[in-house]
C-alpha cells in the first residue's frame, strides 16, 4: 500500500496546477523511492517528467509499486476542498480503484476524508537520454514567465538564441517584432554556462503552459542543445522537480 503525507496542501495544488494544462490524465508511479510521473501532451510535442523523492514527504510508505491513474481536473476539484495549510495524506491499497485523500487542519480540529476514483490508463513511457546541453541557463522563474507571455503577443513561435553574451528570445509576426536579451548578472540571478552557441525555434504556447509551474520555484533552469528538445526544469523544494521537454520546430 501507499501512504504519503505532505505538510501543506498548497504544494500539491501547485504541482497539479503545473501539470493540468499540459496533461488531462496521467499516472503516478509510486515506489519505495518516491512518486514519479511521465507523460506527453495530447499532441505529442512536449513531455512532462515529475519526481517527488520520498524525502519530499513528512511521512512516506510504499510497500509495493503502485500506478495511480488520475484525472487531474478531478484531483484539483478535491484539492480545492482543502485549506492551503491543511496537511494532506494520500493513500491507496494495492490494486486499488480509489485514491484516499485526508486533509487535516493545522490544529487537528478538522479531518476531512475524500475518495477519488482511479482510472485505468495506458502507460506509454519514453526513454529520456542523458543530454549534455551546450547551453544551460538559470534565471528567475518569474522573468521566464514574463518573457513567454510577452512574446506570445507577437507570434506562435519563439526563437531562442543562446551564446556567451546572453540568451535572446525573439518573435515576429504581423504586429511587429520583439527581442528580449538577458545577460549574466553579477548578483547571479541570471547565469549562463555556454559550451557552444545554440539557436532553436519553439512553439510559444507550450512554453506558456510550462510557466504554470512558476509558483513552485524562484529559479528555472533551461537546457539547450542543437536538434534536441528544450529542457525547462523547476525544482520542487530540495528533493523533487518538474521537467518539461519541448520538441523544436524546424524549417519546412
Amino acid at each position: 500500500m501507499l501512504e504519503a503525507r505532505l505538510g501543506s496542501t498548497t504544494l500539491l495544488k501547485k504541482i497539479v496546477d503545473a501539470l493540468k494544462e499540459i496533461l488531462s490524465q496521467s499516472t503516478l508511479d509510486c515506489s519505495a523511492s518516491g512518486i514519479q510521473l511521465q507523460a506527453m501532451d495530447n499532441s505529442h510535442v512536449s513531455l512532462v517528467a515529475m519526481s517527488l523523492r520520498r524525502e519530499c514527504f513528512e511521512r512516506y510508505r510504499c510497500d509495493r509499486n503502485v500506478a495511480l491513474g488520475l484525472d487531474l481536473k478531478s484531483l484539483m476539484k478535491v484539492l480545492k476542498c482543502a485549506s492551503g495549510d491543511d496537511a494532506v495524506t494520500i493513500s491507496a491499497a494495492d490494486k486499488a480503484d480509489k485514491l484516499q485523500l485526508r486533509f487535516e487542519s493545522a490544529g487537528n480540529e478538522r479531518t476531512a476524508d475524500y475518495e477519488l476514483r482511479l482510472l485505468n490508463l495506458e502507460q506509454d513511457h519514453l526513454a529520456i537520454p542523458e543530454t549534455d546541453y551546450a547551453c544551460v541557463v538559470h534565471m528567475p522563474s518569474t522573468e521566464f514567465a514574463r518573457i513567454c507571455r510577452d512574446l506570445a503577443t507577437f507570434s506562435e513561435s519563439v526563437v531562442i538564441a543562446c551564446s556567451k553574451d546572453g540568451i535572446k528570445f525573439s518573435a515576429s509576426g504581423e504586429l511587429g517584432s520583439a527581442n528580449i536579451t538577458l545577460s549574466e548578472t553579477s548578483k547571479g540571478d541570471v547565469s549562463l554556462q555556454v559550451e557552444e552557441p545554440v539557436t532553436l525555434c519553439f512553439a510559444v504556447r507550450y512554453l506558456n503552459s510550462f510557466t504554470r509551474a512558476t509558483s513552485l520555484a524562484d529559479k528555472v533552469k533551461i537546457g539547450l542543445a542543437a536538434d534536441v528538445p528544450l529542457l525547462v526544469e523547476y525544482p520542487i523544494e530540495d528533493h523533487g522537480y518538474i521537467r518539461y521537454y519541448l520538441a523544436p520546430k524546424v524549417d519546412d
Binding site: S43, H44, V45, L47, L126, P129, P229, Y245, A247, P248
Partner: peptide
C-alpha cells in the same frame, strides 16, 4: 514544422 517529442525520445 513542429516535430513530435517521440521522434527524439523513444518508447521503452
Amino acid at each position: 514544422m513542429q516535430r513530435g517529442i517521440d521522434t527524439f525520445f523513444h518508447r521503452m
